[in-house]
Amino acid sequence: MKELQQDVDGYIRQFKEGYFSPLALLARLTEELGELAREVNHYYGEKKKKPSEPEKTVEEELGDLMFVVICMANRLHIDLDTALERVLAKFNTRDKNRWTRISDERKR
Rank of each mutant, 00 (worst) to 15 (best):
Q14Y: 06
K16M: 03
K48Q: 10
V68Y: 04
V87H: 09
L33G: 11
K56S: 14
D9W: 00
G18I: 04
R13N: 14
R38F: 00
L65F: 10
L36T: 02
N97Q: 10
N92P: 12
D79L: 08
R94V: 15
S52P: 04
L88F: 11
I12P: 12
D104I: 03
T100P: 03
R38I: 02
R28P: 01
D7F: 05
W99F: 11
D81N: 14
K50Y: 03
F91L: 08
K50V: 02
H42L: 01
K16V: 11
Y19K: 10
A89G: 14
T82H: 12
Y11K: 11
E31P: 13
M72I: 12
L23S: 14
D79A: 13
L36D: 02
R28V: 03
Q14C: 13
K16W: 04
L25T: 05
H42K: 12
K48E: 02
I102C: 00
Y11Q: 10
I70E: 02
K107R: 13
E60K: 13
I70K: 01
N41R: 09
N97S: 13
L62M: 08
R98H: 13
D95T: 04
R38V: 05
K48I: 01
Y19E: 06
E31F: 08
E39R: 00
S52A: 08
D95G: 05
R75Q: 15
L26F: 09
N92S: 12
V68W: 08
N92E: 14
V87P: 04
I70N: 01
K16Y: 05
G18D: 06
H42A: 02
D95Q: 07
E60W: 02
E61T: 00
V40T: 09
N41W: 00
A37N: 12
T93P: 13
R75Y: 00
E35Y: 08
F67I: 03
E59S: 08
D7H: 05
L4R: 11
D9E: 14
L29P: 00
D64V: 00
R38W: 03
K107E: 12
F20S: 13
R13Q: 15
L33F: 15
A73Y: 02
S21W: 00
K90W: 04
G10I: 00
E85S: 14
L62R: 09
E32G: 09
E61Y: 03
L4I: 10
E35G: 07
R106C: 01
D9H: 12
E60N: 09
S52K: 11
R98K: 15
Y43L: 11
G10W: 03
I102M: 08
R28A: 15
M66Y: 04
T57S: 15
K16P: 11
H42D: 01
T82V: 13
E53H: 05
A27D: 15
L65N: 07
C71W: 01
P54F: 01
E39G: 12
D7T: 06
Y19R: 12
